[in-house]
């Protein structure tokens, strides 16, 4: 053991057990830096993760934009497709397909969309609802 470890580390490990409170190792500047770091980390969440917030809903039929609705106020919009009427409901910060004449109701069951780039596709009725955010065109998905 002594041959491998640096001498002072050997001494430390042999002295293990002598404990004390940890805050005595923090100096005034350390507290300051720690506080600033916490603020930095918290602000990094708000700055970098807010980019995904959606601010408008785009409804398309056969790929053509029919209507763009801002996500500021609550309203319902009716869109006609080959099968019938699809109802889009918008509330502040989110949107969903309220009802759709399609047989399997996938886009209705998807529920509320909140993030920019989220899409609900009502394929039988040729209607898509997608959310868009500020800045660059958003990606379809991210995989890690």
């Amino acid at each position: 053991m002594k041959a491998v470890l640096p001498d002072d580390l050997c001494k430390i490990f042999s002295k293990a057990g002598s404990s004390g409170s940890w805050h005595k190792y923090l100096k005034v500047g350390d507290w300051l830096v720690l506080l600033l770091s916490c603020a930095l980390v918290v602000s990094s969440y708000t700055l970098l993760w807010r980019g995904g917030v959606a601010d408008r809903a785009i409804v398309k039929r056969d790929g053509q934009t029919i209507i763009e609705i801002s996500l500021n106020s609550a309203r319902k919009t009716r869109v006609e497709g080959p099968l019938g009427t699809t109802v889009i409901e918008v509330q502040p910060g989110r949107a969903r397909v309220f009802s759709d004449p399609g047989p399997r109701q996938y886009c209705v069951q998807q529920g509320w969309l909140t993030r920019a780039g989220a899409v609900a596709i009502c394929a039988p009725n040729h209607i898509t609802l997608e959310l868009n955010g500020r800045g660059e065109a958003s990606y379809d998905s991210l995989g890690y």
Partner: peptide
């Protein structure tokens, strides 16, 4: 005097 290992580490 003011900054210790924690600052350097952070």
């Amino acid at each position: 005097r003011w900054f210790g290992a924690v600052t350097i580490s952070l």
